[in-house]
Design a protein around this nucleic acid. Structure first.
Length: 876
DNA sequence: GCCGAGACTTAGTACGCTGCGT
DNA sequence: ACGCAGCGTACTAAGTCTCGGC
């Protein structure tokens, strides 16, 4: 089989990807140089184009009575068909197909108890469609109470649930609802095949591949055929030995061996790092605190600041593991800092309503100001934003104001806008002394509130300032954009600290909501936010032990996956042939998570947030199957909005079995239906947990990112290269990861300009070189005649100069390349969150590239543990 | 066993600061 | 000294995943 190909391929995006934000302007293709292949195919996708793909938005469906019909008919058909196919499905499962309420046309599984009935009809006032399914009607109500999602016993989603989850009005899929999606630019491009790693996809050799259409249930029939497992027993098998049994054979030859090395690795690791992998840090807390004073790496520049660098470094990573579940033993801090009180506008800054001056109450004025200062932002023109703002604004008005102000269009906030702009200008125009003064005050505030003492160590707090009030700026097509984010008062805040510490004092005249002493959590203060009703926390900075340790463990888990990933891959490949739909779906989903580094994709309520998806929540309209695309067979086109409404658009050549399975999953489904209707993140993660302790979907992202970096560094680094060239290689390796993870940024506003500046510099440098060369030649000729020492000296100097210029030119060119390639790729996210810093540290040591070139000061502080423990031999 | 709440990580952007070139 | 590009930081939204209560 194609085990090998699979293995080799995984982890590297062998695909064409066009990544862009929904709103997108077109991005330039990013080339993946890793393997020297242009990775991108330029695909321009305008947001509108994108939208077209998804014709039917969930909202449409909801609204269209026919859809229901359609759904039910389908359901019927589908069910019967499905029964044949998948006897194991429960009736409840049939609903799963559609998260939408109306289509619950999933096949039923006679063996499973139907849950439909259990679903509660909520909110009778919902539209008829929602109720269509009667009892199972799921209403998406925004109220939490209504949000039950129905789940199958096995946890899979009920169609209804999902339905509900998605908001009616929301656009389905990646199509950003009107306008809002993301401010990023368009599609980049993607690339084909450019994955850093080469992927060899083996095609099935069975020769005749029935066309998709022809092959009814291809999966069931052909691939599936006689799978070793019997439906019944299967489950158990999975649970118990799950992977192992069936895979045993395969595993044996391939991986088992691996376990061995892992042992040794473990040993090594243990030695080097105090924690072992398989273990959870349980041991007793060893209060051995070692304090080391260390001088931080000398800053490249500003040596004068060296003294500042001399900080006490607590090498927490040298301490033994601590008690599980206990995050701290003592914790003391001064509490959070609240946003400054509102300063009313001066009298000459007026608000006009319908052309007439109107003096607003303080509260209404403050909120009006929030809007006023956003006047030149896109947000202020969006209907949803305006509507939400106006609604919330009216809530804070006095009854009189409310009576008068009934139309946002008649409101004139321009004076406020001007006023705040002036203030901002003033701030910028302050004298150096004034700025110094402010800086000093800020530093004093950080000194006082920005640190806490935890287990006897002073540690920096990440966000000690409570978020100020303002208008909510959700990303993408967020239904709540523009809502008023209320001012947080001490009475809303819960403080967490040691019982016997000096408690933080609430501001005069106020008191805390609560002071608790919970050492099973890491936060120092929390409050609940009024927009989504979620909790916000004050937590430690990334340089702290609490964060650092967790980060380290994250990479250890990923390394552990590294050791058993072959086995897991072999297993899911085998499962593509399973008789059970849920197993196949799980296996295909896992494949995409592994190969494409997709996020898990929890369900979300579209009333509450933008309609974005991840792997498990993909819907039919998010993929297109191309039997052949640009010379490749079995290409799947992914096009959806992911986290932060960043568009993911990628053409991926997959194995035939995957392709066939996807066809099967899409059968009898319509846009808006779940692609993986028998799967959700809970099910997936439960399965992963069985495969490896501590394994969850996101570990694959970490693993594939780090692994890709390591491979690319090996591939790209050239020992003869200059430091600058090596750094370029590093950045390219980093970039390969960013592309894999789809980390985008909008093109910097000044990009074109700075690029042309750089180009001008390059041109000038070339000019200089030319000139210098000419002079050199002249001198040389001169020297031939004269043969005197003076000319010889000049000649020598000129030669040096030429060399210097050439080197400078080279640097500039490298810089330009790097910049261009990085135009719309954000390297920071992967560097900070996905790449095991020890890989970078080892690389920098091995190639003698100063680590400062790779990590800035903050990053070095965050990764102090890695800087300290990794040497050039570190292997991920 | 399900579900929501809670906790924590991951994410892109706005903006201020720094340092370089002029 | 000034202006500006680029970097770094602050900010906070949006994910993932766990856990506890019903």
């Amino acid at each position: 089989m194609d085990l090998q190909s699979a293995d080799s391929g995984i982890g590297s995006p062998d695909s064409q990807r066009v990544a862009k934000s929904a709103e997108g302007k077109s991005k330039k293709p990013v080339e993946n140089h890793l393997n020297g292949t242009p990775n991108n195919v330029s695909h321009k996708h305008s947001s509108s184009g994108h939208k077209h793909h998804h014709k039917s938005s969930s909202s449409d469906k909801h609204k269209d009575p026919n859809r229901h019909k359609h759904g039910s008919d389908k359901q019927r058909e589908h069910s019967s068909a499905e029964k044949i196919k998948d006897p194991n499905r429960s009736s409840s499962e049939k609903h799963s197909s559609s998260k939408h309420k109306e289509h619950s046309s999933r096949p039923k599984d006679p063996n499973k108890p139907s849950k439909e009935h259990s679903s509660k009809p909520k909110e009778g006032h919902h539209s008829a469609d929602k109720h269509k399914h009667g009892s199972e009607g799921k209403q998406k109500s925004s109220s939490s109470g209504d949000k039950h999602k129905e789940r199958h016993k096995d946890g899979s989603k009920h169609s209804s649930d999902k339905h509900k989850v998605r908001k009616e009005g929301s656009s389905s899929s990646g199509k950003p609802k009107s306008g809002e999606v993301r401010v990023k630019t368009e599609p980049g491009v993607s690339q084909t095949g450019s994955s850093p790693t080469k992927i060899v996809i083996k095609k099935e050799r069975d020769g005749s591949q029935p066309t998709v259409k022809k092959e009814p249930r291809a999966a069931d029939t052909d691939d599936d055929v006689p799978l070793a497992m019997r439906a019944q027993g299967e489950k158990r098998a999975h649970e118990s030995d799950s992977d192992d049994e069936p895979l045993a054979a395969r595993a044996e030859k391939k991986k088992i061996k691996k376990e061995k090395p892992s042992a040794e690795a473990v040993a090594r690791k243990r030695k080097a790092e105090s924690d072992d992998d398989d273990d959870k840090p349980i041991a007793k807390p060893k209060p051995k605190k070692k304090k080391g004073k260390e001088e931080k790496a000398a800053p490249e520049k500003g040596k004068k600041k060296a003294k500042k660098e001399e900080v006490e470094v607590w090498k927490w990573w040298e301490e033994g593991p601590r008690e599980e579940g206990v995050k701290w033993r003592t914790l003391e801090h001064k509490g959070p800092v609240f946003a400054p009180a509102y300063e009313p506008l001066p009298d000459d800054v007026q608000f006009l309503y319908d052309g007439k001056v109107m003096k607003l109450s303080e509260e209404a004025e403050e909120v009006a100001g929030f809007f006023g200062r956003m006047l030149d932002h896109d947000y202020s023109t969006k209907d949803v934003f305006r509507k939400n703002f106006f609604h919330d604004w009216r809530k804070v008005m006095t009854p009189e104001e409310r009576k008068v102000i009934t139309n946002l269009d008649k409101c004139d906030f321009r004076q406020m806008d001007v006023y705040y702009k002036e203030k901002s200008e003033e701030r910028k125009a302050m004298t150096k002394e004034q700025k110094q003064e402010i800086k000093k005050q800020n530093e004093a505030m950080v000194e006082e509130y920005g640190f806490c003492t935890i287990d006897g160590h002073k540690q920096r707090i990440g966000n000690f300032k409570i978020e100020p009030p303002g208008l909510f700026r959700g990303r993408g097509d967020h239904p709540k954009m523009g809502m008023l984010k209320k001012r947080v008062r001490p009475e809303d805040v819960i403080i967490n600290c040691s019982k016997n510490s000096v408690y933080p004092k609430a501001p005069p005249g106020h008191k805390w909501k609560e002071v608790r002493h919970d050492n099973s959590v890491t936060w120092l203060a929390s409050w609940s936010e009024n927009i989504q009703g979620s909790i916000k926390y004050v937590m430690l900075n990334a340089t702290s032990r609490l964060k650092g340790e967790k980060d380290w463990m994250k990479y250890e888990t990923a390394r552990k996956l590294h050791k058993c990933v072959d086995r897991i891959r072999a297993q899911y490949r085998e499962e593509w042939k399973s008789k059970e739909m849920r197993i196949r779906q799980r296996a295909v989903a896992l494949y995409t998570i592994d190969k494409l580094a997709l996020r898990a994709g929890n369900e979300k309520d579209s009333d509450e947030a933008a309609d974005t998806v991840g792997c498990c929540s993909l819907r039919v309209e998010h993929i297109k199957l191309h039997r052949e695309h640009e010379g490749k067979e079995f290409v799947v086109e992914f096009d959806f909005l992911g986290k932060d409404s960043i568009r993911y658009h990628n053409f991926v050549a997959v194995e035939k079995k995957v392709f066939k399975n996807l066809q099967l999953f899409m059968e009898n489904k319509a846009d808006g239906d779940d692609l993986f209707d028998r799967l959700n993140t809970t099910i997936l993660n439960k399965h992963l947990q069985d495969c490896m302790e501590g394994l969850t979907a996101k570990v694959f992202r970490t693993y594939n990112a780090s692994n890709t970096l390591q491979q690319q560094l090996k591939l790209l680094t050239n020992s003869e290269d200059s430091v600058a060239a090596k750094i370029l290689s590093y950045n390219r390796a980093n970039r390969a990861v960013a592309i894999l993870c789809n980390h985008q940024r909008s093109v910097p506003k000044t990009f074109e300009k700075s690029m042309s500046n750089l180009q001008a510099k390059i041109d000038k440098k070339k000019e200089d070189i030319k000139k210098s060369r000419k002079e050199y030649k002249g001198l040389k000729a001169d020297y031939k005649h004269k043969r005197d020492a003076k000319t010889a000296g000049m000649l020598e100097r000129k030669k040096k100069q030429m060399e210097r210029l050439e080197e400078q030119l080279m640097k500039l060119e490298v810089q330009a390349t790097d910049k261009e390639e990085n135009k719309e790729i954000a390297l920071g996210t992967s560097k900070l969150n996905y790449l095991d810093p020890r890989i970078s540290v080892a690389w920098s040591k091995k190639w003698e590239v100063p680590v400062e070139k790779i990590y800035n000061k903050t990053q070095r502080e965050k990764f102090a543990w890695a800087l300290d423990m990794a040497d050039e031999t570190f292997e991920f």
